[in-house]
Amino acid sequence: MMKLDVLYFAWLRERIGKPRERVDTQATTVGDLVAELAALDDWHAAAFADMGAVRCAVDQQLADLDAPIAGAREVAFFPPMTGG
C-alpha cells in the first residue's frame, strides 16, 4: 500500500465533488489507479467514464495511462487543457 495525493481539476473536480483526496493504493500505473478510483463510488465512476476526455499528470508532469506511479507524491486528473 502506498499513500498518494490525487488532485482533480475543472469538471473532474466538480463531478467528484472535491479538489483533492489522499488515497491508499496498490496501483503501479496511472491506469491501475484510475480503475481503483472509479470503483470508489458513482461520482468517481462518472468522472472516469470516458478516459478519452481525461488527461493526467504524475508529480506535475504530463503522463500516459501506462505511466508508473511508484514513488510518486501526487497524481492529477483533468480535461484537455484550454489555456492561451
Binding site: F78, P79, M81, T82, G83, G84
Partner: peptide, 29 residues
C-alpha cells in the same frame, strides 16, 4: 504550447451565472 499543454481550464459564465467549460479544439492540438 500554451493552448494545449499549459494546465489552464476556461469556463464561460453565462447570463444566469451558470458555467460552461470550454472544450479543447482539435485544431489547437
Amino acid at each position: 504550447w500554451l493552448k494545449s499543454r499549459a494546465p489552464f481550464w476556461k469556463r464561460e459564465i453565462g447570463p444566469h451565472g451558470t458555467g460552461q467549460w470550454v472544450e479543447a479544439k482539435d485544431s489547437d492540438e
